[in-house]
Design a protein around this nucleic acid. Structure first.
Lengths: 187, 187
DNA sequence: TTCCTTTTTTGACAATTGTCAAAAGAAAAC
DNA sequence: GTTTTCTTTTGACAATTGTCAAAAAAGGAA
């Protein structure tokens, strides 16, 4: 749980009572490789912090698995659409490496928001940072070639390439596995 | 300002004191077509609510203008990256139709957050809704063809097509103007 | 090791999309 | 109404990327 506290303090340092309330509301979750944290068609009403391991979010489109994000150590994980809208999502979240997570339910989190203004501020700030990241990714997707997107990924997250199968990375980049393989051979 | 109050209440109904504090902190901004709300290379430290008119966000890439969002009536407008990170952004925000906006500075907004927890909650909730929208757009960009993205836009925002030049829409969809023109002729 | 499964690469070809250039059309200015 | 400017369409061709199928390579299990 120290990792979470450290992670949080980089966004916004919350008060000791807020931290105590938060940490006592968390549940530890251990999942082995290939397990599912969230299944499509269900409501995901938990938010997780990933302490150890790695996961991916994907959905099924025309019989193919389409990966659209990866989560690594010290990332916040949930099916955002489902968590925020409280509706069933199309997203599956699968464990790619044995993982340790800390989870909190939507209800518990909102109760904490009522009691601790600074906790809600923390979440607002984290949301904003995640928004910026998403915006950057959208811009890359919209205006860069497959090769440029791959090279950008190489620069910002070289660890992805050692930990994730090529097909899933290709899907994440919005290209076919064959194209990514060819890009790599021509670098 | 009624439009803003109505818009806000659809996200989260704030208290009367919070609304009074917010509304007295707002500045009205009138801008004619082709004016700039934000210029690249500057810090955008204001958040706007667009009451009337329409705008676009774009940046320059290899000498070309790349449009990546449009704002219409009752949208919240800012250069999100710059507003959140407080750093100069690469984004220009240009007025496409004579517009009326209500603006608030980052400093004033954060002061209001300290005084009114419910205002910060409102912004957290709005952020979340905007995050979901962005996520949907990313998924379309990543896994749909140009034609599918165009048809999706036709379905969700037909008004865009009557108000925005084709070249800017094409840019927004991540395709060339010629390709969009050909897609339209084949529907 | 050997076998089996999964992952990655390669080839051939098709489909999609981009680029450049010019023409046509629409809107604004005079 | 005419001219000028901006926007949209069309043509020809090139570049990029996808699809299908098979081979090669890598990783695990027995």
């Amino acid at each position: 749980m120290n990792a979470l506290h450290h992670c949080i303090s980089q966004y916004y340092p919350i008060s000791i009572p807020a931290w105590e309330a938060l940490s006592s509301a968390l549940t530890r979750v251990e999942l082995p490789k290939n397990a599912f944290l969230v299944r499509e068609g269900t409501v995901c009403n938990k938010l997780y912090f990933l302490e150890r391991g790695c996961l991916r979010g994907y959905y099924n489109l025309d019989g193919k698995e389409v990966t659209y994000w990866f989560g690594f150590e010290h990332n916040f994980i949930t099916s955002f659409y489902s968590f925020i809208s409280r509706k069933p999502g199309i997203e599956n979240i699968q464990v790619l490496e044995d993982s340790t997570l800390w989870g909190i339910s939507s209800e518990a989190l909102h109760q904490l928001f009522d009691a601790h203004h600074d906790l809600e501020r923390l979440v607002r700030i984290i949301n904003e940072q995640y928004y910026i990241r998403l915006e950057e990714r959208l811009m890359a997707m919209q205006f860069k070639t497959a090769r440029e997107r791959y090279e950008q990924l190489l620069g910002t997250s070289p660890h992805i390439l050692q930990r994730i199968p090529l097909g899933q990375i290709a899907s994440y980049l919005g290209i076919s596995q064959e194209t990514l393989s060819r890009i790599r051979s021509q670098v």
